[in-house]
Write a protein that binds this DNA or RNA. Structure first.
Length: 423
RNA sequence: GUGGAUGUAGCUCAAUGGCAGAGCACCGCAUUGUGGAUGCGGUGGUUGCGGGUUCGACUCCCGUCAUCCACCCCA
């Protein structure tokens, strides 16, 4: 073992068991996206470095991106997020596209960070965006998609919540506290850290930013005001639309939600497990200046991104992952060398009829063959021995009930389909 | 990038300077036409890697790699 070449730090091997989870999540994302009329797209995994220099946060670009020169001397980056690619793609065909765009994507991303629980260097992300519409109803549609996703993976409203706030509301309120716009970015950073720091350290950080005691107290009061949304010109409409989507049980107001990224311009939201044991499940919001930033004309947009790592950890911890069966439900044994050909032909015949069948590859003891079938997760084992062949029958054992019987070859397919449909 | 903890059988973990072990898993037999249960037996280790101290190192020291945790940042 010590001589094994180790995988790259922060990457994950997807053995069939993990791959089944990833594929299942992908299917759920697709299901919810398509239910709302969103279309799948993708961009390159490699982008010019300048794309991110133009818009992503400084930390993300300078410290967390995989950046290198290709053989032609081009400075390229493995994509650390999808939104700049999306903005670039929209800008490139700005006049030919029909708005609003409803687009979604699922794929790999890379960030050079110190790996820990819920954070790896290579991860998968679902991105979903609504482009070309600037309204509370557009924001609410994304919140409804988010709620639909949480529901479809089996998380309940008391386990996961989408928390929503609005940056413009917060800016208005900060100005009312006498904090000028130039300092809002710093204050947003301060608010973003409220839950992550001890009270004293947080107050100290506020002082370093030049905030007086009164201002700090005002901010603290602001971000604990659960009714603050009522003062917003858009959030009441947002919540009304969310209610119309029957998504209210998953979506609530969070006055402390502000998001770390600079490019959000309006509504922002994050999903959290209510127990607070994990990192944020996903985050997103409205970004109206982004297409503009990559050289297009301004287009309003709202979207969010869900990583596969945290949600998988959470579903596993809650025991909410379904039993995923990757192997074939039917297993054909090889009774002996003499029956090899007939058995392989039986398997082929069933496959041609649309049944998923794995067959044993040699004439091992039947005990071993049954054991393998069981481990591979087969539901039904077929035996074609000398007696069955002589009588043109097949023995069929249902591994769940343990029942076994022989039946005429002509009746096999219908019986298999009946058993598999019941399972 | 900063600080801390941990690396022993496939997995979970014992052994604290003196013969490297247990449970589970795996393989075999009981069971030459049948999985899951039970009993009995068996395979499996350069103690992450490299160096040092010592008569002797899983144990102590240094380095390195990896994993985990907290920062940072964020999915």
């Amino acid at each position: 073992m010590p001589n094994l070449i180790q995988p790259v730090r922060g990457t994950q091997d997807y053995y069939p068991e993990e791959m089944a989870v990833r594929t299942w999540l992908y299917a759920k994302m697709r299901e919810v996206s398509e239910a709302f009329g969103y279309e799948e797209y993708d961009g390159p995994f490699l982008e010019r470095f300048e794309l991110y220099a133009a818009k992503s946060g400084a930390e993300l670009v300078e410290k967390q991106s995989y950046v290198f020169e290709d053989r032609g001397g081009e400075k390229v980056a493995l994509r650390p997020e999808l939104t700049p690619t999306l903005a670039r793609m929209v800008a490139a065909r700005q006049r030919q596209l029909s708005y609003p765009l409803r687009w979604w994507s699922f794929g790999p991303f890379w960030r050079y960070e110190r790996p820990q629980k819920g954070r790896s260097r290579e991860f998968f992300q679902w991105n979903i965006d609504l482009i070309g519409e600037d309204s509370p109803e557009a924001d609410a549609e994304l919140a409804a998609v988010a709620a639909g996703f949480l529901r479809s993976v089996g998380l309940r409203p008391n386990e996961a919540q989408v928390l929503v706030n609005n940056r413009q509301l917060m800016q208005t309120e900060l100005e009312a506290l006498g904090i000028p716009a130039a300092r809002h970015k710093d204050v947003f950073g301060l608010i973003d850290r409220k839950d992550k720091m001890a009270a004293a350290a947080w107050a100290e950080y506020g002082k370093e930013l030049g905030l007086g005691g009164g201002e700090l107290a005002g901010i603290e009061k602001l971000i604990s005001d659960q009714d603050l949304w009522k003062k917003s010109p858009t959030l009441p409409r947002f919540f009304e639309a969310v209610a119309a989507h029957s998504a209210s049980d998953y979506v609530s107001y969070g006055p402390h939600i502000i998001r770390g990224l600079d490019y959000y311009t309006g509504t922002v939201f994050e999903a959290w497990d209510t127990a607070g044991e994990f990192r944020a499940i996903f985050g997103g919001g409205r970004y109206n200046d982004l297409v503009n930033a990559v050289g297009g004309e301004p287009v309003p947009a709202v979207g969010f991104a869900v990583g596969n790592v945290v949600i998988s950890l959470m579903l596993r911890a809650l025991g909410r992952l379904p039993e995923l069966q990757a192997g074939a439900p039917v297993y054909v044994t090889i009774f002996g060398e003499e029956q090899m050909t007939a058995s392989l032909a039986l398997a082929a015949e069933l496959r041609a009829a649309g049944v998923q069948v794995a067959s044993h590859l040699n004439a091992d003891k039947l005990q071993k063959q049954f054991k393998q079938a069981d481990r591979l997760g087969a539901q039904v084992v077929l035996v074609l021995g000398p007696e069955e062949l002589a009588q043109k029958q097949v023995s069929l054992k249902d591994l769940r009930s343990g029942e076994q019987r022989s039946l005429p070859r002509a009746e096999l397919l219908a019986e298999l389909q009946r058993i598999l449909a019941a399972a």
